[in-house]
């Protein structure tokens, strides 16, 4: 039973960064912005968060620095792709290349530094419950945040006026513009939110999951998060399910090795990537499903022609 709980806990740790990054990208895509720079923003968030913790020793500062780092890089995307109408795909790729390089440069002195990991916050009373207590109520703040985030995003997108406007901008920017909504400004805010979430994903990796800094530590999670948004058909609760599914697949490889399954580690490490492809195929084969759910203006530049 202890082994099962340990496995479940590791699934949560593997799913949390994916969940942050996927939900941030989901909101950006709902506003019509396709930011392929998630991987770069995660890495910058990871290095900023780890640097802040190393210099201040304060976990909150680390989390804030991670979010700020991701948001700062996404502001470059907003400037180029939204302000100057550059191709969103090309700008996103540039963001990943730049973020990978910049994070390695900033983090060169942090390699080898140690951190204990984010403090675990036990919920009083509830964490005493056998089984469920250890499983659900004994985590760090970012895990709790990641579980609240789908609810917040779902509520925002479907139950608030601002969320409705954001979706309108993503589905038809001309109409939203004609109705007097500031299309570019709304998309910039959505992009910054996506960047901050990716930064939090990075901060979770470097402050809680590992917790240390190494170059390229995100190992493709940014791209998996992009795939998760498609898997979720742009719905926050499905993103939660998807993140936990992928967390499970990531962790399966570790436990398979621990159990002595005689499969080379490289084959097991391929699983999350192959699963991503499989899932994308399953979702994308139904063209009408994608068409029904995808924001109609995704990736398209907007220029007020009037």
């Amino acid at each position: 039973m202890d082994l099962l709980i340990a496995a479940m806990l590791t699934i949560i740790t593997a799913a949390t960064p994916l969940l942050y990054a996927a939900l941030g990208e989901l909101v950006a895509e709902k506003s019509g912005v396709l930011n392929l720079g998630v991987e770069g923003m995660i890495l910058l968030g990871a290095v900023c968060g780890f640097a802040a913790v190393t210099f201040t020793g304060n976990a909150a500062a680390g989390i804030a620095a991670g979010a700020l780092g991701g948001a700062a890089l996404s502001s470059v995307f907003a400037l180029l792709a939204l302000g100057l109408q550059a191709s969103q795909v090309a700008t996103g790729l540039a963001l990943t290349i730049f973020g990978t390089g910049l994070s390695a440069l900033l983090g060169q002195d942090l390699v080898g530094a140690a951190y204990d990991g984010l403090p675990k916050l036990a919920v009083p009373l509830l964490s005493e419950i056998p089984l469920a207590g250890a499983l659900l109520f004994h985590h760090d703040i970012l895990v709790y945040g990641s579980l609240a985030l789908p609810a917040a995003v779902a509520w925002f997108l479907t139950r608030t006026r601002a969320g409705l406007v954001l979706r309108a901008v993503g589905d038809s920017h001309e109409v939203a513009h004609a109705m007097g909504y500031p299309v570019i400004r709304i998309r910039c805010l959505a992009t910054l939110f996506g960047g901050a979430c990716a930064g939090l994903a990075g901060a979770y990796l470097s402050l809680a999951y590992s917790p240390l800094w190494i170059e390229n530590m995100s190992a493709g999670r940014g791209w998996i998060a992009l795939a998760l948004v498609v898997f979720a058909t742009w719905r926050p609760w499905r993103a939660l399910a998807g993140a936990y599914l992928f967390g499970g697949i990531t962790i399966a490889q570790l436990h398979a090795q621990a159990l002595g399954v005689a499969i080379p580690s490289q084959i097991m490490s391929m699983l999350p990537y192959l699963a991503t492809i499989a899932v994308l195929v399953l979702i994308s084969r139904d063209k009408s499903k994608i068409k029904r759910n995808a924001p109609a203006c995704i990736g398209r530049a907007f220029h007020p022609s009037s």
């Binding site: 470059v76 700008t91 540039a94 730049f98 390089g101 910049l102 440069l105």
Partner: peptide, 9 residues
């Protein structure tokens, strides 16, 4: 990498 990324930006 930083230089290459900047160039593309």
């Amino acid at each position: 990498g930083v230089f290459q990324g900047m160039l593309l930006f």
